[in-house]
Simulated scan of single mutants.
Amino acid sequence: MRFREPEYFFAALRFFTRLPVPAWVGHSQDQLDQAARYFPLVGVIVGAIGAGVTEAAALLLPVSLAVLLGMVATLLATGAFHEDGLADAIDGFGGGWEKAQVLTIMKDSRIGSYGAIGIGTALLIKYTALTEIDAAFEPPFLALALVAGHAVSRLASTALIFALDYVREDETAKSKPLARRLTGGELLVAALFGLAPSLLLGWSALPSLALVGLVTLVAARYLVCRIGGYTGDCLGAVQQLTELAFYLGLLCVFF
């Protein structure tokens, strides 16, 4: 039997980022169906890109600018994939009352006032938290925090794929790797990649992981109550919110 895990990983990398993948990977529905287990590993890579750019820029520029450039690097690497999901989700839940209204608004490619305010606020909180982490901890803590934050936040989204139902009914959406419920084994693989980077932070990561877990549980409960499950935009929103929760948890240890 052919070992296909590299194909599944590269399918995840291609779907969740703008990064190039080898031509031999090809395209298939099976690859997409199996890709979600590597969502946290993609987060490790995106976080490493952000950390690398931040650390390199800090050699020549003030830390405030280095952090901003690192954030830009992750936005370019993902094509603002999750930030777009956050904006759409905030627009949907902010402007819709019934399930159908929420889903319709989220599917609209235009951004509304709720989404614009939400994404602006989220980016500002992230920027401030990262600059404070750099000031509070010795190097290379910030770089490790970036990798861990990107990884564990994607694990949080992956946990929703495991636990909740996908609520969009159009067939084109179901062709995405976000629509198939994960098995327990696939969640275990995701957890391995999602939690491993946090080990490098030691005990400092425990409050952050607890806060990430709490935000994930609250988000899951809210999504079930409002629309009965999740959409791709909801997963992007949870990734963004839990990444922020991770960084804020680190600061709670220091202050």
Rank of each mutant, 00 (worst) to 15 (best):
G149N: 12
A56Y: 06
A179G: 10
A57T: 14
L200H: 02
R181S: 14
I45V: 15
Q240M: 14
C234P: 04
M71L: 14
L206H: 04
V63R: 15
T121M: 11
V67Q: 10
S204N: 13
A89D: 04
R2K: 04
P22L: 10
E7M: 02
L160H: 10
G249S: 05
G112A: 01
P140L: 09
R14S: 15
V238G: 05
Q29N: 00
L19A: 11
L192D: 05
L103H: 01
L200E: 01
L199D: 02
W24A: 13
V218F: 09
T104H: 13
A36V: 11
E169W: 06
I119E: 01
R226L: 01
F246V: 07
F93W: 04
T131L: 07
A179Q: 06
L103W: 02
D170H: 05
G79I: 05
L188P: 11
V189N: 02
T172N: 11
F254N: 15
V238H: 03
L41N: 12
G70V: 00
I161Q: 07
V224S: 12
L59H: 14
P207N: 02
V53F: 01
K99P: 05
S28W: 01
A143Y: 05
A48F: 03
G115F: 11
L60A: 15
G94D: 11
D165Q: 01
I119H: 01
A58N: 13
Y127S: 13
D108K: 10
E138P: 00
L61W: 06
F10N: 10
L124A: 15
C252D: 09
F141R: 07
P20F: 03
A87P: 07
G79D: 09
F81H: 12
L160I: 04
L75W: 05
K174D: 06
A89W: 12
A129S: 14
L244S: 09
A122F: 13
G232A: 00
L86Y: 08
D108S: 13
T242P: 12
Y247M: 02
R37K: 15
I133Y: 00
F193M: 10
A163V: 10
P6Q: 01
A12K: 05
L103V: 06
S198W: 01
A51M: 01
A66M: 11
A173W: 09
D233K: 09
G96E: 12
A196G: 02
